[in-house]
C-alpha cells in the first residue's frame, strides 16, 4: 500500500514536472507568404531559421503556407487558438492580419518580418535592403564591361523600389554614366513565382547590352540567374545566398538575414528575452550583406573587394548615405 502511494506520488511529481516543463517551453509557428517555403529566397530563408532553431533546441514548430488573402488571418487565428505562443508572420502583406489577430490574442507573441505594427505584443523587424543593394550595385558596375546593368523586380511596390533605388545608387556611385535598365515581372502575386518571365526579361536586358542583372523577384529570380548562365553573363541573387545555384555566373547575392531574425526571435522567446517593438536591421546590425564564398570568389577581384569594403565601412560609420524610399 505504502509502495503504491509512493508510486502515485512519484507519478504526480513526474506529471507536474512534464506539464511544468511544457508550460515553460514555447510553441512557435510560422506563416509564409504567397511565394511558399521553398522559394529558395525570402520565405525559404525564414524556414531555414526555423529549422536551425528546431535542430538546436529540439522544439518543433507549426507552419502554414497561404494560398489566398483570407487565409492569412485564418491561419494566425487557428495557430493562436491551438496553443502557439509565438507566431512569425513572413512578409509585408501580413501586416493587417497580424494587427487584427494580435489584438484578439494579447498573450500570444507575434514577430512580423518586413512591416511594422505597433502593438504591445508585436515585434516588427524590417531590413535596410537598400544598403546591401547599394553594395551589389557597386559590384555590378565594377564587373560590367558594357557600362549597362539590369534590375528585375517582382512587383512595383515600395519594398522592391527600395532594392532598385539602392542598387542604382550603388551603380552610379562607381560610374555615374552607367545605364541601369529596370523591369518588373508582373502586377499580381504570381510575379513572385514565374521563373519563365524572369528569364525572358533577363534575356531582353542582355539583348539591350546589359551584362550584369540583379533580381529582387523571389522565385522568379531563379529564371533570371538561369538566363545569365545560359548567356554566359552575370546575375546577382537576392535574399538567400544564391551563389551556389550557378557557380561562376552569380556575381554575388544581396543577402537578407531573415533566417537570423527568425532564429533569434525564437531563441529570445525561449529565454524570455523576447521584446515587442520595432527593429531595423542594416549592414551595421548584420541584417543585410552581400555574399562572398567559394562559388563567387573568382569573380570578385581584390580591387573590387577593397572598394566595396570601404563603402561598407563608410555606410556603417554614417559617412555614406544610401538613398531611401520614402515611408520606410
Amino acid at each position: 500500500m505504502k509502495r503504491r502511494a509512493r508510486l502515485c506520488l512519484f507519478l504526480a511529481a513526474l506529471l507536474a514536472f512534464i506539464t511544468g516543463a511544457r508550460a515553460a517551453a514555447i510553441q512557435p509557428a510560422v506563416v509564409y507568404d504567397f511565394g511558399g517555403k521553398y522559394d529558395r529566397s525570402f520565405n525559404q530563408s525564414a524556414s531555414e531559421g526555423m529549422e536551425r532553431f528546431k535542430k538546436e533546441t529540439g522544439i518543433s514548430y507549426r507552419e502554414f503556407e497561404i494560398t489566398n488573402a483570407a487565409q492569412r488571418e485564418q491561419a494566425m487565428e487557428h495557430l493562436a487558438r491551438h496553443g502557439a505562443t509565438l507566431i512569425i508572420a513572413v512578409g509585408f502583406t501580413q501586416a493587417s492580419a497580424v494587427e487584427r489577430v494580435a489584438r484578439r490574442h494579447p498573450n500570444v507573441k507575434f514577430t512580423l518580418i518586413d512591416a511594422v505594427v505597433d502593438l504591445p505584443n508585436v515585434q516588427s523587424i524590417v531590413f535596410r535592403e537598400q544598403e546591401s543593394s547599394f553594395l551589389c550595385g557597386m559590384l555590378a558596375a565594377m564587373a560590367s564591361k558594357t557600362g549597362k546593368v539590369g534590375f528585375i523586380g517582382g512587383m512595383d511596390i515600395p519594398l522592391i523600389r527600395k532594392f532598385a533605388m539602392g542598387y542604382a545608387a550603388g551603380v552610379h556611385y562607381v560610374n555615374p554614366k552607367d545605364q541601369v535598365f529596370e523591369n518588373m515581372i508582373g502586377t499580381t502575386p504570381a510575379a513572385w513565382g514565374d521563373p519563365t518571365r524572369g528569364a525572358d526579361l533577363a534575356k531582353s536586358q542582355f539583348g539591350r547590352g546589359a551584362d550584369v542583372v540583379f533580381h529582387a523577384a523571389g522565385a522568379s529570380g531563379l529564371g533570371v540567374l538561369q538566363a545569365a548562365q545560359d548567356a554566359g553573363l552575370l546575375g546577382i541573387g537576392c535574399d538567400s545566398n544564391q551563389d551556389y545555384l550557378h557557380p561562376g555566373h552569380v556575381l554575388t547575392s544581396a543577402i537578407k538575414r531573415v533566417d537570423v531574425a527568425v532564429y533569434r526571435s525564437c531563441m529570445d522567446a525561449l529565454k524570455g528575452d523576447w521584446k515587442a517593438g520595432h527593429e531595423v536591421l542594416g549592414l551595421k546590425e548584420g541584417g543585410v550583406d552581400f555574399s562572398l564564398d567559394k562559388d563567387n570568389r573568382a569573380l570578385i577581384t581584390p580591387a573590387m573587394l577593397k572598394r566595396v569594403e570601404q563603402a561598407r565601412a563608410d555606410i556603417i560609420a554614417g559617412r555614406l548615405k544610401v538613398p531611401e524610399y520614402p515611408g520606410s
Partner: peptide, 10 residues
C-alpha cells in the same frame, strides 16, 4: 491610395 507613412501597398 497607399496609406501615408507605410510600406505595404494597402
Amino acid at each position: 491610395l497607399i496609406a501615408p507613412g507605410q510600406q505595404s501597398p494597402e
